[in-house]
Simulated scan of single mutants.
Amino acid sequence: MYTSKSFTKFCSSATLLLLFCTGFTFAQSSNTYSVKSWFGPPAPTFSPVVAADHHITFRLKARHASDVKLLFGEWNIKPQTMTKDTAGIWSITINPVEPGIYSYVFTVDGVQTLDPVNPVTKIGTQLYSSIVEVSGNTPRFDEVQNIPHGTLQIHRYLSTPLKQLRGLYVYLPPQYYNQPTTSFPVLYLRHGGGDNESSWTQAAGRADVILENLIAAKKAVPMIIVMTNGLTDGSWAGGSNTKGLKDLDEELTTDVIPLIEKTYRVKKGRESRAITGLSMGGGQAFVIGLRNLDKFAWIGEFSAGLLSDKDFNADEYAPNVVNSTLNQKLKLLWIGIGKDDPRYPGHLDLVAMLNKRNIHNEFLAIPGGHEWTVWRIELAGFMQKLFK
Rank of each mutant, 00 (worst) to 15 (best):
I210G: 11
K219S: 12
A204T: 14
S183D: 11
N229E: 15
I215D: 03
N213D: 06
K218Q: 14
S198L: 10
M223D: 00
G194L: 02
T232M: 12
P180K: 08
M223Y: 01
T182F: 10
D195Q: 13
D195L: 06
S198R: 11
L189R: 05
N196T: 11
A203N: 05
P180I: 11
H191S: 12
K219C: 09
L189E: 00
S199G: 09
D195C: 03
T228C: 14
I210D: 14
R206L: 07
D195E: 15
L231E: 09
V226E: 07
P180R: 10
N196E: 08
I224Q: 05
N196Y: 06
I215C: 07
T201L: 05
G194H: 02
P222W: 01
T181I: 10
P222C: 01
T232E: 12
S183L: 13
G193L: 03
S198I: 08
Q202G: 13
M227C: 09
K218A: 07
A217C: 07
A220N: 10
T228S: 15
T228E: 15
L211S: 11
D195V: 01
H191C: 10
V221Y: 04
Q202F: 06
M227I: 15
A207P: 09
S199K: 01
L231C: 02
A217R: 13
G194K: 00
V209I: 15
I215K: 06
L189D: 03
F184I: 10
M223V: 01
S198E: 09
L214M: 05
E197C: 09
N213T: 00
W200M: 08
D195T: 02
K219T: 07
T228Y: 05
R190L: 14
N196W: 03
T232K: 12
G193T: 05
P222T: 05
N229L: 13
H191I: 08
G230L: 12
A203G: 03
N213F: 00
A204P: 03
K219P: 04
E212M: 06
M227W: 02
D208T: 13
P180E: 10
T181H: 14
A217V: 07
R206N: 11
A204H: 00
V226L: 07
D195A: 14
T181D: 13
G193V: 02
A216F: 05
L211C: 11
L211D: 10
A217I: 07
G194W: 02
G194M: 05
F184R: 10
E212L: 07
A217K: 15
E212H: 04
N213V: 02
K218F: 04
N196G: 08
L189T: 01
L189V: 00
V226Q: 05
V209K: 05
I225E: 05
L214F: 02
Y188N: 13
P222G: 03
T201H: 06
A217T: 12
G230V: 11
R206I: 01
I225C: 02
V186D: 02
K219V: 01
P222E: 04
S183R: 15
Y188A: 13
K219R: 11
N229R: 04
L211I: 09
G193A: 09
V209D: 12
P185S: 11
K219E: 14
I210P: 14
G192H: 00
N213A: 03
